[in-house]
């Protein structure tokens, strides 16, 4: 893996976080280059949030090396945080204050003059499409609006590195797409995005490069395309059988595909030509209730690497 404390925005070697006898992050190595969108993909409890909190300098590193912009979180926490934008997993907005007050007060934490906070707040309200709600209290806003406000707030110090911990968890599809659009614009402006997610579509949409985390370790690293090429086939054929049928298949699918995964409700057959697999299954006299041929996704990569689904 290339990268050094000088060339990387974030540089981690053997990074470890322990809580008592529990190891949340177990010796991970990664580098984030300036301007890229980098993702941590993994199920809940994989160690993503603990890693993010160490990068954000709010949780001390137990062991290993971590530098952010060449600085050490152990000694330079406030200096690193001053140039960081953080979107935490849970909203931390002051719900009794207005949308605008939340932005202005947050700017004050960074020592910005009041007038400058106001000017930046106006600009960010536009970016987050919240200008019309600026004088409303935060509490009645929708989940999507609160997330957009949290992102706007994280940008008040004009950071070139934005940490997003599960930015769209719990949002409806429309709100997610709006958020992705805003994040994409930030990326185009050159802001480095580091995000965690357990949604493979989010990782595919946003990330130039990602690491797959499972049980406190990094199990694979690459671009979404590279990971799919390396750990899956081009296409997947999903066969869904009637109740009880799948259990009695007894090897009837053997040899149809490069690899076969039996899930609770369906069978996944991995092959480069999914259509041919479907035809071959019919020729063997199998009658699945539904047949779906699709391209491989990161979900398939994860299943291959860990034997489990991402969202359980």
């Amino acid at each position: 893996m290339p990268g050094s404390p000088e060339s990387s925005l974030i540089h981690a070697r053997g990074l470890t976080k322990r809580f008592g006898s529990f190891t949340a992050v177990d010796g991970v190595d990664f580098d984030v280059a300036p301007g890229e969108a980098f993702g941590f993909l993994g199920p809940n409890g994989a160690g993503k949030t603990s890693t993010m909190r160490m990068i954000g300098c709010v949780s001390p590193v137990t062991d290993g090396t971590l530098t952010v912009r060449g600085l050490d979180p152990r000694t330079d926490g406030p200096e690193i945080r001053a140039r960081l934008g953080v979107v935490p997993q849970q909203d931390t907005l002051d719900t009794e204050l207005t949308v605008r007050e939340n932005l202005v007060l947050y700017g004050r934490y960074f020592g910005l003059p009041r007038a400058e906070c106001g000017r930046r707040a106006d600009e960010l309200l536009g970016f987050a499409q919240l200008t019309e709600r600026q004088n409303d209290e935060v509490e009645p806003l929708s989940g999507g609006m609160k997330r957009r406000l949290t992102i706007a707030r994280a940008l008040i110090n004009q950071p070139d590195l934005l940490l997003l911990d599960e930015p769209t968890t719990g949002l409806d599809p429309q709100a997610r797409h709006l958020l992705w659009d805003r994040l994409y614009r930030l990326k185009q402006r050159g802001v480095t995005l580091v995000l965690t997610t357990h949604y493979m579509d989010e990782a595919e949409q946003l990330c130039d490069r990602l690491v797959v985390m499972d049980k406190a370790k990094i199990v694979a690293e690459g671009s979404p395309r590279q990971l799919i090429d390396r750990y899956s086939t081009r296409e997947v054929t999903e066969l869904r059988f009637g109740p009880g049928v799948q259990e009695r298949l007894d090897g009837q699918l053997d040899g149809l595909a490069d690899r076969i995964e039996h899930l609770a409700d369906r069978v996944l057959l991995y092959a480069d030509d999914g259509e041919a697999v479907a035809v071959a299954a019919h020729e063997r006299g199998l009658n699945p209730e539904t047949v779906l041929v699709r391209r491989s996704t990161l979900e398939d990569v994860f299943l291959r690497l860990t034997g489990r689904s991402l969202v359980e």
């Binding site: 945080r81 935490p88 909203d91 931390t92 907005l93 947050y106 934490y109 960074f110 110090n157």
Partner: peptide, 14 residues
């Protein structure tokens, strides 16, 4: 509840 102290801690505030 609101976790505003955590929001403060994500900034240079100690």
């Amino acid at each position: 509840w609101q976790r505003t102290f955590h929001a403060m801690y994500a900034t240079p505030l100690s």
